[in-house]
Nucleic acid binder design. Structure first.
Length: 139
DNA sequence: GCCAACGTTGGC
DNA sequence: GCCAACGTTGGC
């Protein structure tokens, strides 16, 4: 089982939208970046991810589960782009802000800090546990 | 709102 | 295959 981070602008697609989709989940479509796509190709059903709000909020706000493997992105006819479906699992008790992540030495290598523009990122098991602890949330 | 970082595109 | 131009993202 692996861990990931999904970044979204809440004004476009936010945690509340994700929760509203329930257990059926929703395509994480619209990714037009090869690195991000390749990570989605590596995902397996049952993998967990952080749901991160970019821009104004800049915080991890929830945990999602990958519920399909990578498939064609229905938002384009371009066969290059694929995506997985994810569903909301639980919200963070306390959102973990980018500021808090940057303030934690053990998280200084997180992709969130190092490559801030990448919208789908891998998270290590150690990072996963630390961020969950910061958010008072069950891993 | 600005700007740095970075990915993509297209001309050569 | 290189690189300049351009567009986009996201933190500040």
């Amino acid at each position: 089982m692996r861990y990931w981070l999904f970044k979204s602008e809440p004004s476009v697609w936010g945690w509340d939208d994700q929760v509203a989709k329930g257990n059926a989940g929703e395509e994480w479509d619209g990714v037009r970046n090869y690195q991000a796509r390749n990570f989605m190709r590596e995902m397996a059903v049952g993998d967990l991810g952080f749901f991160y709000h970019s821009q104004k909020e800049k915080a991890v706000v929830g945990i999602v589960e990958v519920c399909t493997s990578a498939h064609a992105d229905s938002s384009t006819d371009d066969q290059r782009w694929e995506c997985v479906d994810i569903r909301a699992v639980r919200p963070f008790v306390l959102p973990v802000t980018l500021e808090a992540v940057k303030a934690e030495d053990r998280l200084s290598d997180m992709a969130l800090v190092r490559s801030s523009r990448l919208s789908v990122q891998p998270v290590t098991e150690a990072e996963w546990k630390i961020v969950c602890a910061l958010g008072k949330t069950e891993p």
